[in-house]
Computed example of a mutant assay.
Amino acid sequence: MVPVARYDVEADGGSRGNPGPAGYGAAVLDRASGETLVETAEYLGVATNNVAEYRGLVAGLRAAHTLDPAADIRVRMDSRLVVEQMSGRWAIRHPELRALADEAAGIFPRERVTYEWVPRERNRHADRLANEAMDAGARGERWDPSASTAALDTDIAASAPAPASEPAVGWGSAPDLGAPATFVLLRHGETALTPQKRFSGTGGGDPELSAAGRRQASAAATAFAARGTIQEIVCSPLRRCRETAAAVGDRLGIPVAVEDGLRETDFGAWEGLTFAEVRERYPDDLAAWLASPEAAPTGGGESFVTVAERVEAARRRLVERYAGRTVLVVTHVTPIKTLVRLALGAPPEAMFRMELSAAATSVVAYYADGNASVRLFNDTSYLEN
C-alpha cells in the first residue's frame, strides 16, 4: 500500500491599508521532514486583509493538490478568522469571503483537511512570501520565486552585525514596517442619557442601548459587513458597548473580547447630571476639572490623567495581541478621544476640542516602530438615511 502523503500548508495574506495594496504567500511542506516542497505568492492589487488571507489559503491548497490530490493536509495560519470559519465554528457572512471559503473547501475532501491557528511568529515563512509579493507589486513586478528569501534561516539575519550607521528616514526611504495594528474605534450607540447630554461613565448606572442606539448599532454592523475589513472585536465591559459590539459581532460571525481598560471615565457625583447641573451644583470643582487634566470630578471620580494611563496600558496590550490585525474597538467618548489625542501627540486640553457622535467611527493605525497614524475621525456617514 502506498503511504499517504502528509503536507502542511502555511498561508498568509496582508493588505497595506486594509483595503490597500495586498498580497498573499503560501508554502507546502512535507510534514515529516519539514522540507519546503512548493512556494507561491501573488500581488493582488487593492484588497482587504481577510480577502488576501483567504486567497493565500486557496493558493496553498491548490499547490498541495497539484503535488498529491490524495494527501492529508494540515493548514496552519495566524488568521483566527479564517481558521475558525473554515473549521465551521464561526459563521461566514461576508459574500466575498463566503465564495473564497467555498472555493477552498472544494479543493480537498473536508475529512482530509484540518485547520490549526498559530501565532504570527510561527507563520513567518508565509508572511514573508506575502510581503515579497506586495513589495514586487509596489515595483510593478511579479513575484519571482527564484529570488525568494522566505525559506532562509532567519537566525542568520538576526546574528548579522548591524551597519555602522543608518540612513536618514524620509518620505522616499521609510522602511517597510509591515501591516499595522489598525484600531477601528466605534463609540457605542445612544442610550436614554445620550441625547440629554448627561454625564454617563463607569460610576453611575449601566444603561442599555435605546431603540435609536440599537438602530445605530445595526447600521454600523451593516457598514462593517460591507467593507469586510474587521478581523477582531474588543469592547468596554459596560452594557452599552457590549450590546453595540454584539450587534456587529453577530453580523460578522466574530466573537467579542472584553477589555476592562476601555471603560468610560468614572464621573463620581456628576453621573447622570447635565453640564449645566454640574456647573450649578459644583462650580469650583467643574472649573478645576476644565483647567487641569489632573483634577477629578467631585466625589472620587477619575481625572483625565488617570483615564489616559489605563487607556494607554490597554492600547499597549491590544497592539501587542493584535499586531498586523484590524480590530473593531467599541468604547466610549473619553477613551476614543484619548487614543486619538495620544496618537497625535496633542496636549490633554485637546480633548475639549473634539466632538464625537454616538455610533461614530474613528481609525488609528499603530506601527511596529511605535508611531501612530490617525486615519479617520467621527465618521457617521453610514447612519444617514
Results as ranks from 00 to 15, higher is better:
43 Y>N: 00
95 P>L: 04
105 A>H: 02
97 L>W: 08
94 H>I: 05
121 E>L: 11
126 A>K: 01
55 R>V: 03
100 L>D: 04
121 E>K: 11
67 L>Y: 13
92 I>L: 03
64 A>Y: 11
87 S>I: 01
114 T>A: 15
79 S>Y: 00
105 A>K: 04
53 E>Q: 02
74 R>K: 12
84 E>R: 00
128 R>S: 12
96 E>G: 06
117 W>S: 09
58 V>R: 08
54 Y>R: 03
75 V>K: 00
45 G>S: 09
41 A>C: 09
96 E>F: 07
48 T>G: 08
123 N>T: 05
55 R>E: 11
59 A>T: 05
116 E>T: 13
70 A>F: 08
49 N>C: 12
68 D>Q: 06
88 G>E: 01
41 A>G: 08
51 V>R: 04
39 E>F: 04
88 G>K: 01
93 R>K: 15
112 R>P: 02
63 A>V: 12
75 V>G: 02
52 A>P: 03
124 R>K: 11
114 T>D: 15
45 G>T: 11
76 R>L: 15
111 E>S: 11
80 R>H: 13
42 E>Y: 06
106 G>I: 14
41 A>W: 06
109 P>C: 03
124 R>C: 03
42 E>N: 08
55 R>D: 01
61 L>M: 06
98 R>T: 15
85 Q>L: 05
117 W>G: 08
72 D>F: 11
80 R>E: 14
94 H>S: 04
125 H>F: 13
109 P>M: 08
54 Y>Q: 10
84 E>G: 00
74 R>T: 13
55 R>N: 02
76 R>D: 12
125 H>L: 15
72 D>R: 15
77 M>S: 13
121 E>A: 10
93 R>E: 15
113 V>N: 05
54 Y>N: 06
54 Y>K: 05
120 R>V: 00
57 L>H: 06
45 G>D: 07
57 L>N: 05
50 N>A: 03
122 R>Q: 14
66 T>L: 15
118 V>D: 09
75 V>L: 04
78 D>I: 00
111 E>V: 05
119 P>F: 03
70 A>V: 08
57 L>Y: 03
41 A>H: 06
44 L>K: 03
64 A>L: 11
38 V>F: 14
